[in-house]
Simulated scan of single mutants.
Amino acid sequence: MEKHALSQPGAAPNASLPDSRWRDIRAGVLDMFPFCLAVLPWGILAGSMAVQAGLPLWQSIGLSALVFAGAAQLVTLGLVMSGANVVTILITVFFITTQHIIYALTLRDYVSRLALRYRLPIGFLLTDELFALSGGKSAQQPRSVSYLIAAGGFFYVCWVIFSLAGIVMATRIPDLARYHLDFSIIATFITIVVPMVRSISTLLGVVLSLALSMVLALFHVEGAVVIAGLSGMFFSALLSRRREDVL
């Protein structure tokens, strides 16, 4: 990909900068578009659940606009409706969103060299979907700043619009839950996780997490997703380490 001043801090401006920037912006929007379609039911569900949880209009919109984390929003709203206390909500949301720490560390060497006016929006917009497109698996050649901000910004606008649609629909269509919009969560994460499974240890960790989450959910264990996810990660790391020791 052609680099420009935004993607290489301190680089001298050149005549091709505008064309290069617009090319990256278009590429970011187009690459993110399929993820936006996949997350449409998810956004509608998040907006409708905010209304079902008893939040007023401005809080429902603000939850999507400020938090901007689908899994965290849905889990928080579910826990609020179930009567969970604040400590339980905070701990659960923390573990659910810990993958963002990994995303940030992966892109740190690249993003840390950027100006603050670029680091802040990239940090805010860094979702699972943006990381999947960021080139984070090969941090030596990450996407340009224009690409990252355009892709993340487009996804953010779509998410807020979809959530607003869910808020409106919740007041007009009774019992949205019966349409099983939450399936979009599974579909979205499948498209993100599958391309990242590049080793046997990772595959076995994913399989363990999936199986354990279903078993724990069957027995109504609180925090089943968190327990299953952490177990899968530790299992995958253990297998990877043992493999390195053998080699």
Rank of each mutant, 00 (worst) to 15 (best):
A187V: 14
T202C: 07
T191Q: 15
F189R: 02
T188H: 02
V197C: 14
S199A: 09
L218H: 15
A187S: 13
P195V: 02
A211H: 10
S201K: 04
V194E: 05
I192D: 03
M196D: 14
L218K: 15
G205V: 00
V194W: 06
T191C: 12
L204S: 12
L216T: 06
S213D: 12
V194T: 12
L216S: 00
L216Q: 01
S213C: 07
V193R: 00
S184P: 00
V193Y: 02
I192T: 11
S184L: 02
M196R: 15
T191Y: 08
I200T: 14
S201I: 07
L203G: 05
S209V: 07
L216N: 03
L218N: 14
T202I: 12
V207C: 05
L208G: 04
S201Y: 03
I192H: 06
M196C: 11
L203F: 01
A187M: 10
L203P: 00
L212G: 01
V215C: 07
S184I: 01
T191S: 15
V193M: 05
S213V: 06
G205E: 03
V194F: 07
T191V: 11
I192A: 03
S201F: 04
R198M: 09
M214P: 00
A217W: 10
V215A: 11
G205F: 01
S184K: 00
L212I: 00
V215G: 06
T191L: 13
